[in-house]
């Protein structure tokens, strides 16, 4: 579950204050796929990073997976991201020094609970299998197509079995057919009970969403 209440965000350009979010209220329930659409520069990504506990410089209240973010230390916020949030980015953001499988393993290797590496590897292989890329486990990102890279990114996002998936223009760098495959994958994740929030400016994504919200002038509207 994601809950934002009265979230504000202001950028500063020298002396000038540029409000980008002006009191955003949002609630996304488990099993719901919600799309936020809006023009470039409207603050969609900013909203996503606030909802994902990556951006801490904002006003208002945010709760993710039943955890209010107010007052959380950087370490606890990081642990929450690791445990409860999966990010998917437009430009995939895979680490070039790692294979597809190792990229998926990354959140597991960051854990403090002493999870066995073999166990992490096995779960990462399962996650890759789920997105249909078991055969490409050893391939470095440079040898994968755009669609395959995004699938690896999704496998990394679902590896920790998070409660929330946050996707930032996930089909922005993909062709139509590949994009459709990714969108249907998000639909599957929502049906599995995950809270999925996608920011996009593409209609095909919003068509698959249960709800579509428009971000305009710093505010959300249906």
């Amino acid at each position: 579950m994601i809950r934002l209440a009265g979230v504000t965000k202001t950028f500063r350009d020298g002396e000038q204050a540029l409000p980008i979010l002006r009191g955003v209220d949002l609630e996304v329930a488990p099993g719901e796929l919600v799309a936020i659409v809006g023009p470039s520069g409207s603050g969609k990504s900013t909203l996503l990073y606030i909802a994902g506990a990556l951006d801490t410089d904002y006003g208002g209240e945010v709760t993710i997976a039943d955890v209010p973010l107010a007052g959380l230390s950087p370490t606890r916020r990081a642990a929450l991201r690791n445990r409860a949030v999966g990010f998917v980015f437009q430009s995939f953001n895979l680490l070039q020094g790692l294979s597809a499988l190792e990229n998926v393993m990354l959140p597991g290797m960051l854990r403090r609970d002493g999870t066995d590496r073999a166990d992490v590897r096995e779960r990462a292989a399962d996650a890759l299998d789920r997105v249909g890329l078991a055969a490409k486990a050893k391939a470095p990102p440079a040898r994968l197509s755009g669609g395959e890279r995004q699938r690896v990114a999704i496998a990394r996002a679902i590896f920790t079995r998070p409660r929330v998936i946050l996707a930032d223009e996930p089909t922005g760098n993909l062709d139509a057919v590949t994009g459709e495959g990714i969108i249907s994958l998000f639909g599957e994740l929502a049906r599995d009970g995950l809270t999925v929030l996608v920011v996009t400016h593409e209609e095909r994504v919003s068509r698959a969403a249960a709800r579509v919200l428009h971000l305009h002038d710093g505010r959300l509207s249906s």
Partner: peptide, 8 residues
Amino acid sequence: VLAAVGAA
């Protein structure tokens, strides 16, 4: 990206 996947 490391921070996004849980690095403090």
